[in-house]
């Protein structure tokens, strides 16, 4: 009996935490999407991203994936690639970065609720994605792929 009560209480607490994170987060992200917040942000940070070696048209799918998740970012990436705006290894590098680092708000928040330290999680994940993508980009260049 004690086991059942304990499990039920633990489960209730867990699901309550997930509820108060997920529902407001999805509402905020939906508002972001309908007001084109990321389109504006893309323009704002374009001087920085071009210095880092990202081509202009790959920044939006990258940001979309980092904020909204890999299926949304991936969809944008496929769309841009079809229009011929992202060519060659750029598409692969965006996909690689997104695979390592996406849905950063959602993933971080649900782990914070379990006790994780948010800045370690965010910094380590973003830095890792940057380093791995940069290493692979250098390797591809050495292989002679444009």
């Amino acid at each position: 009996m004690e086991f059942i009560l304990q499990t039920a209480f633990g489960l209730l607490k867990l699901m309550a935490l997930i509820f108060i994170i997920i529902v407001p987060l999805i509402i905020i992200l939906e508002l972001f999407r309908s007001y084109g917040v990321l389109e504006k942000l893309t323009k704002l940070i374009s001087p920085l991203t071009s210095r880092l070696g990202f081509e202009k048209d790959s920044v939006f799918p990258l940001l979309a994936g980092i904020v909204f998740g890999i299926s949304y970012g991936g969809g944008v990436l496929v769309g841009e690639a079809k229009k011929g705006r992202i060519v060659g290894n750029q598409a692969f590098l965006v996909a690689l970065f997104l695979a390592l680092c996406h849905a950063i708000f959602e993933d971080t928040l649900i782990f914070i609720a379990q006790g994780a330290i948010w800045w370690i999680v965010v910094l380590t994940r973003v830095a890792t994605a940057f380093m791995i993508t940069a290493l692979v980009a250098i390797w591809l260049k050495k292989q002679g792929h444009p």
Binding site: T7, G10, L14, T108, Q114, A116, I117, I120, V121, T128
Partner: peptide
């Protein structure tokens, strides 16, 4: 799967990064 295990802050932080990637 780990919520009921009583993990430390350090352990949850490591898990968060590993599973996030």
């Amino acid at each position: 799967a780990f919520a009921g295990l009583g993990l430390s802050i350090r352990q949850v932080t490591i898990l968060a990064v590993m599973l996030g990637i």
